[in-house]
């Protein structure tokens, strides 16, 4: 067999890398730790149900992108709800609830979207994650289904690897959970009404 010139192999490797870079799947693993929230807690007892599906959630905002955000979204929600309520318990199913809480919160992901520079004509990557917080009382009566969209973008995609840029935008979107809940959770009219009734009874 005739020996090949080393440049030939280098060229093949370069072409393979370019083809991989253009057509590959971006996987973002977000295992971030988040800071503690500065938010005044209220004297209520809440139970948060993190189902295994939520805790291991992998978002697929496009056919080429998957975001493993399950543990990171659980982490930030744990911190947020711990700051918003005086007493909080976290379970993976409702059957494990022992004491009667004032409110039960079931978070789930409805959908996720991504926008890349070739779509938005900007040098930024953007991520939207839409959550649904199903809020029930201890008897299982629905208080509300509250849809909570969160958003994050990178500062600049120039010279950033696509994976890093999407990871950065995802982290920003997950941090937005804390901001959105701190601002709006107690402003949800049905929650405000329900908790007012609870505090009136006690």
């Amino acid at each position: 067999m005739r020996s090949q010139h080393p440049v030939f192999f280098i060229t093949i490797v370069c072409i393979a890398l370019i083809v991989k870079g253009c057509g590959g799947t971006t996987q973002v693993l977000s295992e971030e730790s988040f800071p503690e929230l500065l938010a005044p807690s209220r004297a209520f007892y809440a139970v948060i149900i993190f189902t295994p599906e939520f805790s291991n959630y992998v978002a697929r905002p496009s056919s080429k992108t998957s975001l493993s955000i399950g543990s990171a979204q659980e982490n930030i929600m744990r911190k947020t709800f711990s700051a918003l309520f005086d007493t909080v318990d976290f379970f993976d199913s409702e059957e494990k609830i022992e004491q009667a809480p004032d409110i039960i919160i079931h978070p789930s992901v409805v959908e996720s979207q991504i926008a890349v520079p070739s779509q938005n004509y900007l040098n930024v990557y953007e991520i939207w994650i839409k959550y649904n917080l199903k809020l029930t009382d201890v008897e299982g009566n629905l208080i509300d289904n509250w849809f909570m969209p969160v958003y994050g973008k990178t500062s600049d995609s120039f010279m950033l690897q696509k994976e890093k840029a999407i990871g950065s935008a995802t982290r920003a979107a997950l941090r937005d959970i804390g901001a959105k809940l701190s601002l709006d959770f107690y402003r949800i009219p049905s929650v405000e009404r329900h908790l007012r009734e609870k505090s009136g009874r006690s």
Binding site: R175, A179, L183
Partner: peptide
């Protein structure tokens, strides 16, 4: 100061900053 300096919550003017700084935490 999380989450009060995130893009969604950061004060755009002095009026909002005054409100924030009054929060004991």
């Amino acid at each position: 100061l999380y989450p009060w300096l995130e893009p969604r919550t950061a004060p755009k003017g002095l009026l909002r900053m005054r409100q924030l700084i009054q929060e004991p935490l």
